[in-house]
């Protein structure tokens, strides 16, 4: 472990927590599907930064970089599928508003 690197943990941690708060608020408050995806993306970015920070502090950057690269690939796949689902919903309902999606409740 780098001794002065452990000093960097908590300033970074505060900002990571703020980014998580922004993402949660966006997901819980919005009714637009694309903006909900943007909130999800912000949450994923906070987690990515947390993993990279853990690797920097523990001096195991190679391990965490492998993890982060896998994570980024998964993130792109999830976003692509989610955007496809959103476009399908939009062509079906002619709207992106969650309040107008009545047929999804069965």
């Amino acid at each position: 472990m780098i001794p002065q690197a452990i000093q960097a943990f908590w300033p970074f941690g505060i900002f990571i927590f703020m980014l998580i708060v922004i993402g949660f608020y966006c997901i819980l408050t919005t009714f637009n599907l694309i903006r909900a995806l943007i909130g999800l993306e912000l949450l994923l970015k906070a987690v990515t930064l947390l993993i990279v920070l853990a690797g920097y502090i523990t001096n195991h950057s190679a391990l965490t970089q492998a993890l982060v690269i896998t994570f980024i690939v998964v993130e792109v796949v999830v976003m692509t599928v989610a955007v496809g689902v959103v476009l399908g919903i939009r062509s079906h309902n002619n709207s992106l508003d969650l309040r107008k999606m009545k047929n999804i409740k069965g």
Binding site: I34, T48, L53, Y56
Partner: peptide, 23 residues
């Protein structure tokens, strides 16, 4: 800056490029 250059290149090319094009 956090000593992870390869992951940074992935983030810059894939998340900044591809996902913004997608959105």
């Amino acid at each position: 800056k956090l000593n992870a250059p390869l992951a940074a290149v992935f983030e810059l090319s894939v998340c900044t490029g591809l996902i913004s094009v997608l959105f």
